[in-house]
Design a binder for these strands. Structure first.
Length: 156
DNA sequence: GCCAACGTTGGC
DNA sequence: GCCAACGTTGGC
């Protein structure tokens, strides 16, 4: 069992948007960074724990719990000339971008980026490293447990 | 809008 | 294969 943090821009796909989908499940489309892709393609397993994170918004932070809900498969948007995620170098025969489905299991309070930064046990989180831009990052079991504990508290 | 960080591109 | 220029991410 592995744990992950996955960023989504709520203007494009919020946790509420996913909850409104069938089975509260969404294909994690649009990743165009090789390291993030490789996490999905090579390391994610069914039912891995996922922190659903809202980025590029007024209050960035963890907003829900989710799980990996499929094995990897090609991201359809890479083949769609009308999509902003279209990749002319990808083909059906040689897809370049793989994704997994993510199922939201629970919406939580917003555990803000500022609150994450303020916690002594989370200073090593990849998300919090200076200059980090990765949209998918691994979370250690202690970090996962700490964050679940924070989510169980009322907002501070 | 600014800017730090870093990935990608393309000339050589 | 190097590396400068450029583009993107994402918080502030």
């Amino acid at each position: 069992m592995n744990y992950w943090l996955m960023k989504s821009e709520p203007e494009e796909c919020s946790v509420d948007d996913v909850l409104a989908m069938p089975n509260a499940t969404v294909p994690w489309f649009g990743v165009r960074n090789y390291l993030a892709r490789n996490f999905m393609r090579d390391q994610m397993r069914l039912q891995d724990g996922v922190l659903f994170y809202h980025s590029s918004c007024a209050l960035p932070g963890v907003v829900g719990l989710a799980e990996v809900a499929s094995t990897p498969y090609p991201d359809a948007t890479q083949f769609d000339a009308g999509s902003k995620y279209f990749d002319p170098k990808a083909s059906l025969e040689a897809p370049r971008w793989q994704l997994v489905d993510v199922r939201v299991t629970r919406k939580t309070r917003t555990l803000s980026l500022a609150e994450l930064r303020a916690h002594a046990d989370l200073t090593e989180m990849i998300l919090l490293r200076r200059g980090n831009r990765l949209s998918i990052t691994p979370i250690t079991p202690p970090e996962w447990n700490t964050i679940l504990g924070l989510l169980a508290e009322s907002s501070t």
